[in-house]
Nucleic acid binder design. Structure first.
Length: 479
RNA sequence: CGGGGCGUGGCUCAGCCUGGUAGAGCACCUGGUUCGGGACCAGGGGGUCGGAGGUUCAAAUCCUCUCGCCCCGACCA
């Protein structure tokens, strides 16, 4: 329950986020530093994210499976750049059942290696390909600086792992899954994202190519919201994932992996939230509508609750996720603020006047205050509510897109660049050298988030060194 | 690992300088009055003051050590 106001986003965006996550009961701190407890409201949101993604995965031929959390340490060490990338952040189990283990076990930071081991056994022929498996699990990475949802030691996600006969098929898969993430982000979460290619320095440890979707948060900073990797034949060679082709030749497979995590919840919070609290996109909100009954005494309570329960049943029958606030002893004003803080997209007020008039009050979360209230009749209420939810979903996407575009600049010299990345994104020419990438980071803390697919082919001067450049990179300060 | 800050009921903190055996607000419980934008009154429960050691007749307070957390600098979904 909310007890106090949040700091405003302008005052302290970071603190606004921290307090909101706790007060909205999305998550709580765990006894171990850097770990989080995902509370029921937060998990309900994650479940809706899972469903939206899972049906897209299934529709493209993927199946779910479960792999163990413990991985032999030697597995991690088989792929050179994979070890280098992950060894600093591994949690290692050295004792089991009171005995020191002959070989230490790592708690999976990701499952490429154990997948490689299994795929090597399962794949013999081109007829076994493609192999398209997804895992819903949690992984552990020993991070130094943590923040609820955005970066915790353990986090929940899905990781897809596929094996293919050719580079082209693997590349198609990698891009297809990024497209799915984009579609999910835009159409389910109302989070506008920029899909693109990562630079070599930002690539996944062990990948030939990493693609990501990048979103802008309410403070102008970037958040990587999902990634898809073309692993080439790196893991296939390290784990001997081979198949016999139609010509009877033994070939190494081409593999991919792709993931989206509970970090995305952080994106939803920071993209849509306002100074009153969360604003959840209707398609993912655990409760799409909250009914707040209003009455002064038992005399009024009976008819009000009867109507409220009937409305709830009607909405449920129309597949609308609805919550009836039946808590005792709270004033309506308190409930309004409480549910606004929790981001329920639509509030319905049902009081004695409504019982008398055959109407209810609807209040849109994206238009706070009394001004956003409208009176609607009970006739066709489920349809009215559904229509409002669709409108809110669209309004959130439009607002977030407008915000992001207004803070995405196209600087042409470094001084201008420096100013742009203080408050948003800079989309500008980059010559492709790691030196320029590093120099920009040193001087401004902004990194290349991705090289967007969408930029028109053109030529210009690198924002850092002024040398000829053939592509534009998206720069921003990142979470 | 370097720099800065903090550990006192569930939460935010006061008390520490100048030792005398623990307080406020919020939250929680009970009863009553309230209720269409964060109600009010009355009563009540809850803390070995992060931990260990020391000084002292007496330690939340002074001394030593230790543990933990938060913020800022090098990795990451």
């Amino acid at each position: 329950m909310a007890e106090q106001k949040l700091p405003t986003r302008a005052e302290d965006f970071s603190e606004w986020y921290n307090q909101l996550v706790l007060k909205a009961e999305l998550a709580d701190y765990a006894p171990v530093r850097g770990c989080m407890i995902v509370r029921p409201y937060g998990w309900a949101l994650w479940e809706n994210i899972q469903q939206a993604l899972d049906r897209r995965f299934k529709a493209t031929g993927h199946v779910n499976a479960a792999f163990p959390m413990l991985i032999p340490k030697s597995f991690i060490e088989k792929e050179k750049s994979h070890v280098e990338g992950f060894s600093p952040e591994l949690a290692v189990v050295t004792i089991g059942g009171g005995e020191k283990l002959a070989e230490p076990l790592v708690i999976r930071p990701t499952s490429e290696t154990i997948i490689g081991h299994a795929y090597a056994k399962w794949i013999q022929s081109y007829r076994d390909l493609p192999l398209l498996i997804n895992l819903w699990n949690s992984v552990v990475r020993w991070e130094l600086r943590t923040k609820l949802f955005l970066r915790t030691l353990e986090f929940y996600w899905q990781e897809g792992h596929t094996a293919h006969a050719t580079f082209e098929e693997a590349e198609f898969e990698t891009r297809q899954m990024l497209d799915i993430y984009t579609d999910f982000a835009v159409n389910e979460a109302a989070v506008p994202v920029i899909p693109g290619r990562k630079t070599a320095g930002e690539r996944f440890a062990g990948a030939d190519q990493t693609y990501s979707i990048e979103a802008m948060m309410g403070d102008g900073k970037a958040l990587q919201a999902g990634t898809s990797h073309n692993l080439g034949q790196n893991f296939a060679k390290a784990f001997e994932i081979r198949y016999l082709d139609k010509q009877g030749q033994l070939q190494h497979c081409w593999t991919t992996s792709w993931g989206l995590s509970t970090r995305f919840i952080g994106a939803i919070i920071m993209v849509h939230g306002d100074d009153q609290g969360l604003i959840l996109p209707p398609r993912l909100a655990p409760f799409q509508v909250v009914i707040v009954p209003i009455f002064k005494n038992d005399e009024e309570k009976g008819p009000v609750m009867d109507l409220a329960r009937k409305i709830r049943a009607d909405l449920v029958a129309s597949d609308i996720r609805v919550k009836l606030d039946e808590r005792d002893g709270l004033t309506p004003g308190f409930r309004f603020n409480d549910w606004e803080m929790r981001g329920v997209p639509l509030r319905m007020e049902v009081g004695p006047k409504d019982v008398a008039k055959g109407s209810v009050v609807l209040a849109r979360r994206d238009r706070p205050g009394r001004e956003g209230k409208t009176f609607v009749t009970l006739d066709g209420l489920p349809a009215t509510v559904s229509k409002a939810l669709v409108e809110i979903q669209a309004a959130l996407l439009a607002r977030a897109t407008q915000f992001r575009d207004s803070k995405t600049h196209h600087p042409t010299d470094f001084a201008e660049f420096r100013t742009c990345v203080e408050s948003g994104f800079a989309l500008c020419f980059w010559c492709g050298s790691e030196a320029c990438e590093a120099r920009a980071k040193e001087q401004t803390k902004a990194t290349i988030r991705c090289i967007p697919f969408a930029t028109e082919p053109a030529n210009g001067a690198c924002i850092v060194c002024g040398q000829p450049a053939a592509e534009k990179a998206l720069f921003g300060k990142a979470y």
